[in-house]
Amino acid sequence: MIIDLTTKINHELINAWLDTQENKRIATGHVGTHLDTYQKSNIPLEYFERTGVLFDVSEIESERDIAISDIEHIKIPENSFVLFRTKQIEKYEYGTKEYFHDHPQLSHDLIDYLINKKISFIGIDCSGIRRGDEHTPADIRCEENGIYVIENLCNLQNLSNAPFTVYTMWLDDEVATGLKCRVIVKQ
């Protein structure tokens, strides 16, 4: 079975936001499913195909961070694509204020834990692994360690715990700090 994890966007909602942005080229890279590359590092081509590991953390309320103890029961192979299902994109339409407001986030300890696992990607079905002023520094910390954060994934509820392969396609851009991408799973 092939499952597309790429979010389709409502252009009316997004165009209203883009009209408020000073640099539309930079802003457009951060719309929909994309990976953040603030350091403009070269993403290794072998990242295209990775073993996927899914963590359903949808029962965790946004009043607390997602912690190591929430995921340590599942083995995380080196070089894997770790996905977090929070249900944020299932509850709220992408592009709405509710979608971006107070979304779940990974604890700093969990981010460090994933860095130490030497994974390739962190994927999440909300607008980031941290909120507000902590968003960009968390993404940069991951990127400095060869891990790229992919935001705004969808259809994670269609994945099973069985082993699966994740295919990620992106287009490099010398200027943009967000690269639109397509993420597809084969189970």
Rank of each mutant, 00 (worst) to 15 (best):
D36G: 14
T37L: 14
T37W: 06
Y38H: 13
K40P: 00
S41R: 13
N42L: 12
N42K: 12
L45Y: 13
L45S: 15
E46Q: 13
Y47N: 13
Y47I: 04
F48D: 02
F48H: 12
F48A: 05
R50E: 09
T51M: 06
T51K: 13
G52N: 06
V53K: 07
F55T: 08
F55C: 08
D56V: 00
D56C: 01
D56W: 02
S58Q: 10
I60W: 09
E61H: 13
S62E: 12
E63L: 11
R64H: 08
A67R: 15
I68M: 07
D70M: 11
D70H: 11
I71V: 15
I71E: 04
H73I: 01
I74V: 14
I76E: 12
E78S: 12
N79M: 04
S80N: 06
S80D: 07
S80Q: 05
S80Y: 09
R85I: 02
T86G: 09
T86D: 07
Q88E: 13
I89T: 03
I89S: 05
E90V: 04
E90S: 05
E90W: 00
K91E: 08
Y92A: 02
E93C: 03
E93P: 00
Y94E: 03
Y94L: 01
G95V: 11
G95C: 02
K97L: 11
E98W: 03
Y99P: 04
Y99D: 05
F100R: 04
D102H: 09
P104K: 14
P104C: 11
Q105W: 04
Q105S: 10
L106M: 06
D109E: 14
D109S: 10
L110H: 03
D112K: 01
D112L: 08
L114F: 03
N116P: 00
K117V: 00
K118S: 10
S120W: 04
S120R: 02
S120N: 11
F121I: 00
F121D: 07
I122N: 04
I122Y: 00
D125F: 05
S127V: 02
R131P: 08
G132P: 02
D133N: 13
E134Y: 13
H135Y: 12
H135I: 04
P137I: 11
P137Y: 02
A138N: 03
A138L: 05
D139Y: 05
D139C: 15
R141N: 15
E143F: 11
E144I: 11
E144V: 07
N145P: 05
I147E: 14
Y148G: 03
V149P: 01
V149T: 14
I150R: 13
N152E: 02
N152C: 15
L153Q: 01
